[in-house]
């Protein structure tokens, strides 16, 4: 009898594992960063799975005014242009992901997080000579490492703004995994000590209740 039930349940579970359903985790993690003229980000469940088709709301942290809304794609990523109002007023942004089933995640963004990338799109580079000098210094300081590549003086077609954009783009690409790691490190899962501590608390509370009830019992 027991064996039969076991076999049935094993079969049921293995059958279930092929069902496509959206499972729940405890919390969702939102992660966003400035990426040129837009803000890019990602939503994952704490189990590491990507959250698809999740509503993203961007609001001003102070007034809670909604500035933009979007949805995540199949990879759990989202992208939206930086709201002009936010750039103008240097707002602290709050990126909220709401799955609709009671799970909600937030990500805070200070103006520095997105302004840098928004700035160089909005303004035209006026201090070109200064930064060309900087580039010269750089290549002079490390001639062996970067012998053929940076020759800004013989390539006048490349403007300071373009270089800045290229560097920006490459840096973004290289730094994205690092940002991911940081975002994940900020939200560690429960550790063994947490779990054991919790069990200890509960048993201890039980002991306290038992103590007081026991006193009453012996008094009466």
């Amino acid at each position: 009898m027991l064996k039969r039930i076991l076999i049935t349940s094993v079969l049921l579970f293995s059958g279930l594992s092929f069902l496509p359903f959206s499972a729940h985790a405890h919390k969702i993690l939102v992660f966003a960063y400035g990426d040129g003229p837009s803000i890019t980000g990602e939503v994952t469940f704490s189990s590491g799975r990507k959250a698809r088709e999740v509503e993203i709301t961007v609001m001003d942290e102070a007034t809670k005014k909604v500035l933009a809304t979007t949805k995540t794609n199949d990879k759990g990523e989202f992208k939206f242009p930086i709201p002009k109002e936010a750039v103008r007023k240097k707002m602290n942004l709050l990126v909220v992901a709401n799955v609709g089933d009671g799970h909600r995640g937030e990500w805070h963004m200070t103006p520095q997080d997105y302004m840098d990338s928004a700035d160089h799109v909005a303004t035209t580079g006026s201090d070109a000579p200064a930064s060309t000098e900087l580039l010269h210094e750089d290549s002079a300081a490390s001639p062996a490492a970067s012998a053929p590549a940076p020759q800004p003086s013989v390539a006048p077609a490349v403007t300071e703004k373009q270089i800045e954009q290229i560097v920006e783009r490459v840096m973004d690409r290289k730094l994205t995994p690092v940002k991911h790691l940081l975002a994940q490190a900020c939200e560690p899962g429960p550790s063994v000590s947490d779990i054991l501590g919790g069990i200890g608390y509960i048993i201890g509370l039980g002991g306290i209740v038992a103590y007081f009830k026991g006193q009453k019992k012996s008094a009466s």
Binding site: F18, L19, F21, A25, I195
Partner: peptide
Amino acid sequence: FVASLIHVPLGPGSVH
């Protein structure tokens, strides 16, 4: 308290 930490991997995700 502990049960909700037990994730049962099913299909693409996991449930607790």
